[in-house]
Amino acid sequence: MATRVPSIACIGVIGKHNNPLHISLFPPKERDSLEFSFLLSSCLDIFEMRMPLKTADQDFGLLQAVDERLAMYGWLTNTGIKFIIVVDMEGRLAASGDAKVSSAVGIRDADLKPAFRALQTAYINLMRNPFFNPVEASALKAGVDQKISSDQINSPGFIKEVKRIGEAWTAGATTI
Score class of each variant (00 low, 15 high):
166 G>M: 01
98 D>G: 03
51 M>R: 15
139 A>D: 04
81 I>W: 01
126 L>N: 02
96 S>Y: 05
17 H>W: 08
18 N>L: 07
40 L>V: 11
143 G>M: 10
90 E>P: 00
26 F>A: 07
6 P>Y: 05
157 G>M: 12
106 G>H: 09
28 P>F: 06
34 L>E: 11
69 R>S: 10
80 G>I: 11
46 I>D: 04
92 R>K: 11
163 K>A: 11
104 A>P: 00
152 Q>I: 14
2 A>R: 05
83 F>L: 08
1 M>G: 10
88 D>R: 03
112 L>Y: 02
167 E>K: 12
2 A>C: 07
108 R>N: 11
157 G>L: 14
20 P>D: 02
171 A>H: 03
28 P>N: 08
163 K>Y: 02
21 L>D: 00
21 L>T: 02
104 A>W: 14
79 T>Y: 08
72 M>I: 13
136 E>G: 08
106 G>Y: 03
41 S>L: 08
43 C>Y: 01
118 A>P: 00
4 R>E: 06
35 E>M: 12
133 N>I: 06
172 G>H: 09
58 Q>W: 07
69 R>V: 15
113 K>F: 05
99 A>S: 09
97 G>M: 04
152 Q>E: 05
78 N>R: 15
53 L>W: 12
13 V>D: 04
1 M>R: 12
73 Y>E: 04
122 A>L: 08
128 R>L: 14
85 I>T: 01
23 I>L: 15
44 L>G: 02
45 D>V: 15
36 F>G: 00
82 K>F: 01
160 K>G: 10
27 P>K: 10
173 A>L: 07
117 R>M: 13
143 G>S: 03
94 A>S: 13
80 G>V: 08
64 Q>R: 10
38 F>N: 10
48 E>A: 15
93 L>Q: 09
112 L>S: 02
63 L>Q: 07
52 P>D: 07
131 F>A: 14
170 T>W: 04
96 S>E: 15
113 K>H: 12
90 E>A: 11
142 A>N: 10
138 S>Y: 03
108 R>C: 12
97 G>V: 05
133 N>A: 12
28 P>G: 05
141 K>C: 00
42 S>N: 14
168 A>L: 05
108 R>Q: 13
60 F>P: 00
169 W>R: 05
140 L>Y: 01
8 I>C: 07
92 R>Q: 11
7 S>K: 04
139 A>K: 13
74 G>R: 01
46 I>K: 06
130 P>T: 12
90 E>N: 13
78 N>G: 06
85 I>H: 04
17 H>D: 08
13 V>H: 00
109 D>N: 14
155 S>P: 02
119 L>S: 05
47 F>G: 06
